[in-house]
Simulated assay, not measured.
Amino acid sequence: MKEKSIGKREYTEEFKVEAVRLVESVGVNEAARRLGAPTATVGNWARRARKEGSATSVALPGLSKRPISELEAENSRLRKELAEAKLDVEILKKATAYFAKGSR
Rank of each mutant, 00 (worst) to 15 (best):
K2T: 01
E3Y: 07
E3M: 09
K4P: 15
K4C: 03
K4M: 02
S5F: 04
S5T: 10
I6Y: 04
K8V: 07
K8C: 06
R9Y: 08
R9P: 15
E10G: 01
Y11S: 03
Y11H: 01
Y11R: 07
Y11V: 12
Y11W: 13
T12D: 10
T12A: 12
T12W: 06
E14N: 12
V17E: 02
A19G: 06
V20P: 00
R21W: 04
R21S: 02
V23K: 14
S25A: 15
V26K: 07
V26A: 02
V28Y: 08
N29L: 14
N29P: 07
E30G: 01
A32W: 05
R33M: 03
R33Y: 01
L35T: 00
P38S: 06
P38E: 04
T39S: 09
A40P: 11
A40S: 13
A40T: 10
V42I: 15
G43A: 14
N44A: 09
N44W: 00
W45R: 00
A46C: 06
A46W: 03
R48D: 03
R48E: 00
R48N: 06
R50Y: 04
R50C: 02
K51Q: 15
E52R: 10
E52A: 01
G53D: 02
S54C: 01
S54Q: 03
T56P: 00
S57H: 01
V58S: 02
V58K: 06
A59L: 02
L60A: 12
L60N: 12
P61V: 05
P61Q: 08
P61M: 09
S64G: 10
K65W: 04
R66C: 14
P67S: 13
P67W: 11
P67V: 11
I68H: 01
S69W: 07
E70C: 02
L71S: 07
E72C: 04
E72Q: 10
E74K: 06
N75H: 12
L78S: 02
R79F: 14
R79A: 12
K80T: 09
L82A: 10
A83T: 00
A83C: 09
E84F: 03
A85M: 11
A85Y: 02
L87D: 15
L87P: 00
L87F: 14
V89L: 07
L92S: 08
K93M: 11
K94Q: 14
K94F: 05
A95H: 06
T96I: 08
T96R: 11
T96D: 13
A97Y: 14
A97N: 13
Y98N: 09
F99K: 06
A100M: 11
A100V: 14
A100K: 13
A100T: 15
K101D: 15
G102L: 11
G102M: 13
S103Q: 11
S103H: 08
S103V: 15
S103T: 14
S103W: 14
